[in-house]
Each structure stands twice: as C-alpha cells, then as structure tokens.
Write a protein that binds this DNA or RNA. Sequence first.
DNA 1: TCAAAAGTGTTAGATTTACACCCATGC
DNA 2: GCATGGGTGTAAATCTAACACTTTTGA
Lengths: 238, 238
Amino acid sequence: MIVNGSTVHEVLVAVFQVRHLGGHDDPKHHNGAELCVLLWERAMAPMVGMWSLPGGKLRSDEDLPTSARRQLAEKVDVRELAHLEQLSVFSDPHRVPGRRTIASTFLGLVPSPAEPELPSDTTWHPVTALPEMAFDHRTVVDYAHSRLAAKLSYTNIGFALAPEQFTISTLKSIYSAALGYHVDATNLQRVLGRRGVITPTGSTAPSGRSGGRPAAVYRFADSRYRVTDEFAALRPPG
Amino acid sequence: MIVNGSTVHEVLVAVFQVRHLGGHDDPKHHNGAELCVLLWERAMAPMVGMWSLPGGKLRSDEDLPTSARRQLAEKVDVRELAHLEQLSVFSDPHRVPGRRTIASTFLGLVPSPAEPELPSDTTWHPVTALPEMAFDHRTVVDYAHSRLAAKLSYTNIGFALAPEQFTISTLKSIYSAALGYHVDATNLQRVLGRRGVITPTGSTAPSGRSGGRPAAVYRFADSRYRVTDEFAALRPPG
DNA sequence: TCAAAAGTGTTAGATTTACACCCATGC
DNA sequence: GCATGGGTGTAAATCTAACACTTTTGA
C-alpha cells in the first residue's frame, strides 16, 4: 500500500575508473587495463549479498549533484572525482520494495592513477564481469557505460579518466579499456590533437627497461568538460 | 523555511511541432515552416502573465512518462504525441518559490500536419521568438531544442515530426525548421535512404498548380524511436 | 514551348582507419 | 648492432555538402 506524499528521492552514481587488473597482461585489447565500476555489497535486507551502486537519499536542502558528491564521500575521496554528470531518472513506483523511491542516476569518473581508500564492503568490478546486482542497478551501469563511450567520441571527457600528464600509449590503453575495443595510438594522437583536446607538454617520458624511444608527454588542454566536435567520431575498427 | 519531506516532484514537457506560420513565405531557410513550442500563460501568482511549459505534480502511483502524458492531456490530444523522452532534472532547492520542487523535464514531439485544439491560455511559440518565460523554463526549452537537433542526425526521430507520408521537399522543410539551417533535399534523401530510415511508398504526390514534376512519396521505415547510426552526421552548411 | 519542381550524377573536401616505414633509446 | 617501443607519412575507404544537369509536369 502506498501512502501519498511518502515518496523518497535517491541518488545513484556509477563511478568508473580504468584500472590495471592482475599481472597477466592481455595486450590483445587494452594492455591489462580494464574499465571498472565501484560497487558495495549489501549486508542488510533487502537483497543481502547483492551488489549496489553508491548513493542514498536526497536531502531537502541540497540539489542532486551536491547530494551525489556527499553520498559518494562515504565511499571514495570525492576530490578524486573529476567528472559528474546526470543520467536518467528511474521512476517506476515499484522499482524497489517499500516506500516509493525515485532514483536520479549519475555518471562519475575517477582518473586512472588514483587509488582511493575504500570501505571493506566496497570494491571495483570490471564492467566485463559484473556480479549480480540489486534492483535496477545493472541497467544504470550499462547505460552509464554506453554514455561514457559515446562521449569519448565528441567531447574531451577523457580528461576525467586520464592522469594529468600521460603518453599517447597510456591514453590509448585508457580509451581502449573504456570503449572496449582496440584504439590506434597513432590516430588517437592525431584526432585529439587536431581538435585541440590534448597538447604536448614538451617533456618526454623515460623509455622502459627494454629500451624504446622515449614517449612525448601530453596533457588535456581543458580540465573541464567541453563538447569538442558535435559531429566527430571514434569508430570501432572495421 | 523548508520543512523536511515536503518536497514536490513535478514534470515539465517541452512539446515541439513544425508549423507553417503566417502567409509570408520566407524561402531563405525553411519555406515558412518554423519549429514551435507549446506554452501556456500564467493567470495566477507567481509570475502572472509569463509563459510556462505544460506539466504538473507527479502522483505517487505513476512513473514519470505516464505523468507527463497525463499532464499533457490537459493541453493537447495526447494521441498526437509521437515521441516523448526524458531530459534533465532541475533540482536547485530554490528554483521556484514556496515548497521545494524538483522538475523532471521531457522532450515531446507532435507530427507536423496535426492541429490539436488548445485551451485559450495555450499557444504555439516559434523557438526563434520566445516570450519571457517563468522560472527556469527557458533553459528547458533551449536544452530540448539542442537535444532534438542532435538526435535528428543519428536517429530516426524525424518520424515524430513528419506526417505518415511525405515528399522529400516536405521532409526537407521540417528538418530545416527543426535544425535552424538550410538542409539540401538531395542529400537528405540520399543520407536517410542509405541508412534505411525512409523508404519510398511507390506512389507520387500531384504537382502544384504551377507545374513541376510530381514528387515521390516516402514514409519512415520505423514508427518507433531508433538509433540509426551512432556516428552519422547532418552537418550544417559550410 | 516554357517555367517550375523533383530527381540524378558528379565532384570536391573532410575525416578516419590501416599500415608501412623511419627514429631514438637501452642493453 | 639490434630489439623495442614511439612517431611520421601516406594510402584507401567512407561520408557529406554543393551544384550542374536531366526529367516530368502544368499552363
């Protein structure tokens, strides 16, 4: 039974980061780097043992982005969060048991080298191997992922996944992991360069222990989200 | 002063239709056709005399799209609504005076020939000449417009603005009006044809009183929203 | 026959993937 | 030297805007 006026508004955030898993390098696609999402394991009913997105109830004195950041602070250092954007709203009256709960969902991005401390119930999960998730949270993750992939094409959103400074190789593995397919380093450099998304810093990175030419170091021109080319594309390989 | 739990959730819809205004044809851009949005004039405080988007409070037993259709039924025949999609949520605690109100906004589309009856306080307004609007509703209209323009490029969303059957000329003026710039009829036909968005019906339309070759009649292949080409573009003229 | 509207053919430009080839460094 | 990774040059494919030209109709 539903009591009028008892509707709750919650915020859910799909936080992504490109992370290097295990030792076994799999250079086939993304050089061991994988796109991961932050999940916590439910200890109490309902849905004990299933995995959920971080989030919680909206307060009456905060707007949605503020709430998302506050809720996230319980899981990760919010200063690590380089990008946060609103996705869809889930409003089915029966999407969760109990009081009617409307969920506003968000996409959050954490740059790659960061290694934030996590509570014991919280871990990163590769999006290619998600556990069983509570309620409609899996839908949120899938939607957030496709949104991220699309925006890598025509915006500078990559800045929120990459380190401050990086080589093209590093950027290539980040883009490959986030997109899920192989990205050509050569073309990535040219495309992002032409659009003014990345610029060389002038310095170079030392070459690895097995030799090789030292790589030029780049950074993103802007550190804030920007639509770079409405009609640009990063197409999957043919 | 804000009382906890008194938050209201409302729905706002920016309903667009391409309409032929006045007699003076302006073939420069869109052949007299203009993209219009449905607004009603406030008769009561606050903001008397200003123009607002249709919408209203969400009920506890309906989800957002259902609510949007119900609220809209008070303004237009909902059967005319060929497309409805969620946009952003506006959640600033002080976006409207009085009780805290969270607004979920929508984009709605009405096909071109329809001429729904409207209440006396409600009229169509060209997006190129919007009146002063209440609260943050102008922001919603602008956002909805840009979303529509973007989706005309890579989805079949045009079906929701066009008649069931149409000539390429008709479709061209609809696209031109919605996009705000001149679209080449030749290329529109080829692009949408190659993507399988439109198909010829086989019949032809009679030529006008001043002669001219009769135009082939087309229709949209699907009558439901579909992403046709993730990476396709309709670029503005160079 | 002529003007008007529709459709076809073609060109030029832009963008992107793919890949061969040259460059710089450590061992 | 030589293997290894990084960078440049370039070709091929795709797509799109622009526009000249042909086709079909009504007066």
